[in-house]
Nucleic acid binder design. Structure first.
Lengths: 194, 194
DNA sequence: TACAGAACGACACGCTACGTGTCGTGTCAT
DNA sequence: ATGACACGACACGTAGCGTGTCGTTCTGTA
């Protein structure tokens, strides 16, 4: 019967058209209104072709977003950890804006309702990103910008927590100044662990 | 011409049955599998009765949760702000557990995909809860536990951020010890604002 | 207590999207 | 060249949506 399809014979044209259609439709009408049939129609592709390669609209969008962002946003390292954190958090906030039609925001929301999708997101995007953060933070600790006793897991929660708090409760995404103040607080807290 | 229905003639029996059915079904099968038809069947109620009073399954669940929690969880005030924050955050984490079938977690996730639902959640639950936090924090400032210069909006983001970071990215909800450490960090940061 | 009217349960309806199956056509590794 | 398989197209049964209709039951008010 239907064994797994052969990736070597896969149509690149169809793959790209599907990913493009998913992204543009999500940005136009939001994730809730996104349907497999809608994607198929805009991409000029059979539904069967989508179901052959993806199990859900969430995973289609995940691949689209992953492709779009290239590999996970790398952490800058200018030698100033606090400045680099500001840069990085502002970039991430940009990915979630505008919240109503951001494919990234939709993906994260859907992941909270779909454990399987969440696992894929974690593997493809979140885990590498966290690894990047920890590497950058350890570098800051080696240079003496932060005490060696500071815990990267705690720091991660505190640096990014405000963003997800705003996102989850729809409190409005933080602007640059709000980000700056919160990061400054976290830096103070981490330095106090010495 | 379906004018607005008359709340005075509303059947309390049906209302309670619907709310109970929504809660139990959500806990059994999760929010994604929750349907208006399923709620109607379990509640022994006509679909029409549900649609007469609620526009979506999300708003049904919101009312169920609001009723369940009575009025918004009040902030304790033992005179020890850090201890009270630990108590409060642990309670909130409990509301979100287990993430897969928690009606509260489902509601917050759905709110990220449905702006109208999010607005209702904010009015009925979030806004009063934030007001309670700010009141408790100002009390701590009056007593001198925190400097008067500490900003409640920043504090809110930092105290609750870690929880929503874990929730949104499915990193596993923090346990008591993890909460304790993060709150201690935030307290240090807020005290450093002096 | 009688009564009008509205909410109720039941059921049927058309619709959209789902996920699968079938069937020629086209395309690619060999 | 050729055979296998992914492709586009189209059809299918199903689930759930949101609405409409119709008696029946309940409730607030006269």
């Amino acid at each position: 019967m239907a064994g797994a399809p052969d990736p070597q014979r896969r149509s690149e044209r169809a793959r790209v058209a599907i990913l493009d259609a998913a992204l543009s439709l999500c940005r136009e009408t939001g994730f809730s209104a996104l349907t497999i049939e809608g994607i198929a129609e805009r991409a000029g592709v059979s539904k069967k072709t989508i179901y052959r390669w993806w199990p859900s609209k969430g995973t289609v969008l995940l691949d689209a977003v992953t492709e779009l962002a290239g590999r996970t946003a790398l952490f800058p390292d200018t030698g100033d950890f606090e400045r680099d954190m500001n840069t990085q958090v502002n970039i991430v906030v940009g990915l979630y804006s505008p919240q109503d039609t951001s494919p990234v925001a939709a993906l994260v929301a859907e992941g909270q309702l779909d454990a399987a999708l969440a696992a894929s997101i974690r593997e493809q995007v979140i885990a590498p990103s966290i690894a990047g953060f920890e590497e950058r933070m350890r570098s800051a600790q080696r240079v003496g910008e932060l005490p060696g006793s500071a815990d990267p897991a705690v720091a991660l929660d505190l640096f990014y927590g405000p963003l997800y708090h705003r996102l989850a409760l729809r409190l409005g995404l933080p602007d640059e100044e709000e980000i700056r103040v919160r990061i400054a607080h976290v830096m103070a807290a981490l330095r106090a662990t010495a």
